[in-house]
């Protein structure tokens, strides 16, 4: 048991990522407000970003900037962070797109509550 706890403590970023992921998932599941769902998605994505970045981290490592006279040889892995930049960009664009959609839904249905939208069914005209 203590072994497990020890592992968890050492790998706390992953643990945090998992918790974040769960929170996000739960938000997506239980909230019927469209915005909240979107936020849930964002939380989940953040969880994954966190995991990536944590994976690149090396305890005691340095920022990987090579300027020729830096004596350090232990750098943290820059690649995940760089990748996550891309990921964040993607996430932002998804969010933007989703917001636009929510806007359109709101215009058509007059609400952002998913349950009510579903109740209205397909009768709404263009």
């Amino acid at each position: 048991m203590s072994e497990v706890i020890k592992k968890l403590i050492i790998n706390y970023p992953y643990f945090a990522a998992f918790i974040l992921f769960a929170i996000g998932a739960l938000t997506v599941l239980t909230r019927s407000n469209l915005f909240k769902k979107l936020i849930g998605i964002n939380i989940m994505e953040s969880a994954v970003f966190l995991m990536f970045v944590a994976a690149g981290n090396i305890r005691g490592g340095y920022v990987p900037i090579l300027n020729g006279n830096n004596p350090q040889t232990l750098f943290i892995n820059p690649l995940p962070s760089a990748l996550m930049l891309t990921g964040i960009v993607v996430s932002v664009s998804v969010t933007a797109f989703a917001l636009a959609l929510i806007l359109r839904l709101y215009r058509s249905y007059g609400t952002t509550d998913l349950r009510r939208i579903y109740k209205m069914g397909n009768e709404v005209s263009e």
Binding site: A25, L29, T30, S32, K37, L114, R115
Partner: peptide, 15 residues
Amino acid sequence: KINLTGISADAALLI
């Protein structure tokens, strides 16, 4: 007690 409709249900299925 949580009612899952539409997307929620789909997401629940996925998860």
